[in-house]
């Protein structure tokens, strides 16, 4: 029975469609000459046939419905996560806006120091800026986080950010109006402030263009 081990291996390989033509003929030749191997081979064939004759069994008809009813309801958090994955641009835009407003409000709230646009002869006490009598401010005057008293004159615009214009007893309203050559703007709200900045930058760009055009005209 020395043939057995080798031949049986070949039989299994044959049943698994794993045998080369050479080995197939080798196995066939051996089976013809060896009755015990022949017997073994027949038994294996029979096993194969039995196994393949096994009926396909079917699931109960409500199986799919049962599975669907038992699926976990997905938590909302997962839903958001997936939505963000599938809409990356919207997510990026949302994050951008959140960060922008956070940055903006921290700039608005965080910077409470008094700042005044650089003009000569202004008197600064505590949180109050005074344009003394007899003093004329040629350009615009911007005061941030502070109040303003005008006793002299301002030729340009006056912008008050987070502060107010104090009129003392001496100065009545008509006098004040006369003292400011340009507009008076008071900005107390963040949106006003944002709007002011936007307007300012647009104006800057615009006036720059106009200036350039004039200059070009002058050159021509």
């Amino acid at each position: 029975m020395a043939c057995n081990k080798e031949a049986i291996k070949l039989m299994h390989q044959y049943l698994d469609d794993e045998l080369s033509t050479d080995d197939k003929s080798k196995l066939q030749a051996h089976l013809k000459s060896c009755t015990s191997c022949q017997q073994h081979y027949q038994e294996l064939k029979k096993t194969n046939t039995y196994m393949k004759s096994m009926d396909q069994i079917n699931v109960p008809h409500d199986f799919t419905r049962n599975v669907m009813n038992n699926l976990p309801k997905e938590p909302k958090r997962v839903g958001y996560k997936r939505w963000m994955k599938t809409h990356p641009i919207v997510t990026a835009a949302a994050i951008f806006f959140v960060l922008m407003f956070a940055g903006l409000s921290s700039v608005w709230n965080g910077n409470s120091q008094l700042t005044v646009s650089k003009q000569k002869d202004l008197v600064i006490e505590n949180n109050t800026v005074t344009v003394p009598e007899g003093v004329t401010v040629d350009g615009d005057l911007v005061v941030k986080n502070g109040d303003l008293i005008i006793e002299g004159t301002v030729k340009g615009d006056v912008v008050l950010i987070n502060g107010k214009l104090i009129s003392d007893q001496k100065s009545s309203d008509p006098y004040l109006a006369a003292a400011i050559g340009g507009e008076l703007k008071q900005i107390d709200q963040i949106f006003d402030w944002v709007w002011y900045n936007i307007k300012k930058s647009i104006n800057d760009v615009f006036s720059f263009k106009v200036n350039t055009i004039y200059t070009l005209h002058a050159l021509v």
Binding site: E18, T47, Y50
Partner: peptide, 19 residues
């Protein structure tokens, strides 16, 4: 996989051959 199929089939052969 091959070894297990061979052994499994051998084992089934021994049990099913008298059927």
């Amino acid at each position: 996989v091959k070894t297990r199929i061979h052994r499994g089939r051998e084992s089934l052969r021994k049990r099913l051959r008298h059927m």
